[in-house]
């Protein structure tokens, strides 16, 4: 109850502040199992992507988030656990023997869609559009070939909420969904990641920082 209320206020707030516009350029919002992979510049990224989805899809779409950040404090734990039903992953690899992809694979097996930021961390550099991708997305694509990989470019949110600032700026944001990507049979990790990066950059508007 409380979680639903918080979810709706978060979505309404995000829409009001950013005048959110969702462009389905390469695909349509369908109830197919997907991994939405997006650029990462702000903690609000997954909120904006999540708010772009129709309510029915939103219920089955879970953001992948770093456990190190989101398990600090009751509020964060409540937000990621109850409101967004996030999939928490261990970015520090503290236990060296276990597979860090495990929680994501479990969620995919259960039929959920994921929101993933393959850069692994927020890109805070004004000059660089995209950091190199971590390889997790490649292994997920190999393990679950039936899942569509949808590139999503989130534009302008970095300017709305720069790192370490509290007050958001009411600038307009756009979330663009590109055409789904499929991992080819014998494609190498490097080739696949390069293709994924390219698909994402194609959605980015061309401009200097």
């Amino acid at each position: 109850m409380l979680a639903t209320l918080v979810a709706y206020s978060v979505i309404a707030g995000a829409r009001a502040i950013t005048g959110l516009r969702s462009l389905w350029l390469g695909t349509t919002p369908r109830s197919k199992q997907r991994i939405y992979f997006a650029n990462h510049t702000s903690h609000g990224d997954f909120v904006l992507l999540w708010a772009s989805l129709p309510a029915a899809l939103r219920k089955r779409t879970r953001p992948v988030a770093g456990a190190d950040y989101w398990t600090k404090g009751t509020l964060r734990r409540f937000v990621i656990g109850e409101v967004f039903k996030g999939v928490l992953i261990d970015r520090q690899h503290s236990a060296s023997d276990h597979n860090p992809l495990e929680p994501m694979l479990k969620a995919l097996e259960a039929g959920d869609s994921l929101i993933l930021f393959p850069e692994g961390t927020r890109n805070l550099d004004d000059e660089v559009k995209l950091l190199p991708f971590k390889s997790g997305i490649f292994h997920l694509a190999k393990a679950c070939p039936q899942v569509e990989l949808v590139p999503v470019w989130i534009d302008n949110l970095k300017r709305v909420m720069p790192k370490g600032r509290v007050l958001p700026l009411p600038l307009l944001c756009t979330v663009s969904f590109g055409a789904p990507l499929v991992a080819k049979e014998d494609e190498s990790k490097e080739a696949f990641l390069a293709r994924a990066v390219e698909a994402l950059l194609e959605l980015a508007p061309e401009e200097e920082a």
Binding site: L124, D126, K158, R159, P162, L169, P170, L171, L172, E207
Partner: peptide, 12 residues
């Protein structure tokens, strides 16, 4: 103002 600032890039 929102449209103007959105369209002209600024830095953090």
């Amino acid at each position: 103002l929102r449209e103007f600032i959105t369209l002209v890039p600024t830095r953090s």
